[in-house]
Amino acid sequence: MPGGRPRAFDPDTALDQALDVFWRNGFEGTSMAELTAAMGINKPSLYAAFGNKEELFTKALARYLDGPGAYATAALDADTGRDVVERLIHGAVELTAGAATPPGCLCVKTVQATGPDAHAAHRDAVAVRKAGEAALRRRLEQATDLPARHDPATLAALIHTISDGIAVQAAAGRSRAELRSIADSALHGILDHRA
């Protein structure tokens, strides 16, 4: 006798839908009703497949990092420090203001707008951000083509600060073209050896 009824939904598609809702609304701005409606499942099915809201968010965050946010890890493999910096800052524009993605950044929204009931989501988002900045610092320590005035740790923090600002501006409605221009100005200031 079979061991139970098969799921009537595709877990990967449902997780993508949950990611979209969390990305648009942030963790606290997302209700279980919105999640179940977007995912096309009821609460018992959601709990059985993904756990509670915090566990679902953790899975959606991993999906975000391996999917739309993967540009950041890929940028670290660029041949030069200059290329790493350019790919990260331009990638932030594409991620947060692209036509195919919700405006803003899932991690930035989660870090900015979480109260006591969202401690786990906040902790996860902060951990992701710290790990990303540490990886960038290590990569910049290997770069030989960046202006000598840049300390790798400070430069890594600066790049993350610029990327965060881009995400906030995208969420506030600034256009991709405007953000691209802002990114280019920031890159000029960072990468110009004469500055």
Results as ranks from 00 to 15, higher is better:
Ala97Cys: 09
Ala157Val: 04
Arg5Pro: 01
Arg176Asp: 12
Pro44Trp: 05
Pro103Arg: 14
Ala157Arg: 14
Glu28Asp: 15
Ala60Leu: 06
Glu34Tyr: 04
Leu15Glu: 07
Arg129Ile: 09
Gln17Tyr: 06
Leu88Arg: 14
Ala75Asn: 10
Ala70Ile: 14
Leu61Thr: 02
Val168Leu: 15
Leu155Cys: 04
Arg149Ser: 07
Asn42His: 05
His188Gly: 12
Glu86Gln: 11
Thr73Ser: 01
Ala131Lys: 14
Trp23Gln: 08
Pro2Phe: 13
Arg138Phe: 05
Ala60Lys: 01
Asp16Tyr: 02
Asp20Ser: 13
Ala49Tyr: 02
Gln142Trp: 00
Ala18Glu: 05
Arg174Pro: 06
Trp23His: 15
Thr114Glu: 04
Met1His: 14
Leu15His: 00
Ala125Lys: 08
Leu35Glu: 04
Leu76Cys: 01
Gly165Arg: 08
Gly26Thr: 00
Ala62Val: 07
Lys59Cys: 09
Ile89Trp: 01
Phe9Val: 00
Gly26Ser: 00
Leu15Pro: 10
Leu15Tyr: 01
Leu19Ile: 07
Cys107Thr: 09
Gln142His: 02
Ser185His: 15
Arg5Cys: 06
Glu55Gly: 12
Glu133Tyr: 03
Phe27Cys: 09
Ala48Lys: 11
Ile166Asn: 05
His119Gly: 08
Gln17Ala: 15
Arg180Ser: 11
Ala62Pro: 01
Glu86Tyr: 03
Val111Ser: 05
Gly40Ser: 10
Asp164Gln: 13
Lys109Asp: 06
Val84Phe: 00
Val93Glu: 04
Ala134Pro: 09
Pro102Tyr: 00
Ala70Tyr: 12
Thr161Gly: 15
Arg194Phe: 13
Thr58Leu: 15
Val21Thr: 13
Ile166Cys: 05
Val126Pro: 09
Asn52Tyr: 04
Ser185Ile: 07
Gly98Ser: 09
Thr101Glu: 03
Thr96Trp: 00
Thr58Lys: 13
Thr114Ile: 05
Arg149Thr: 02
Gly115Phe: 06
Arg138Trp: 00
Ala62Ile: 02
Pro68Ala: 14
Ala92Cys: 11
Gly104His: 03
Glu94Lys: 08
Thr96Arg: 02
Ala170Pro: 05
Pro2His: 14
Thr73Val: 12
Thr80Val: 03
Arg176Gln: 15
Ser175Asn: 01
Phe57Glu: 12
Thr73Gln: 03
Gln112Met: 13
Pro44Ala: 05
Ala100Lys: 12
Lys109Glu: 07
Leu191Asn: 11
Ala195Pro: 02
Ala177Met: 06
His119Asn: 14
Arg194Met: 12
Ala167Val: 00
Ala99Ile: 06
Leu46Ala: 12
Asp164Arg: 15
Ala74Cys: 01
Leu56Lys: 05
Arg180His: 11
Ala186Val: 01
Phe22Pro: 03
Ser181Cys: 08
Pro116Asn: 12
Leu19Val: 04
Gly40Asn: 07
Ser181Glu: 14
Asp77Asn: 11
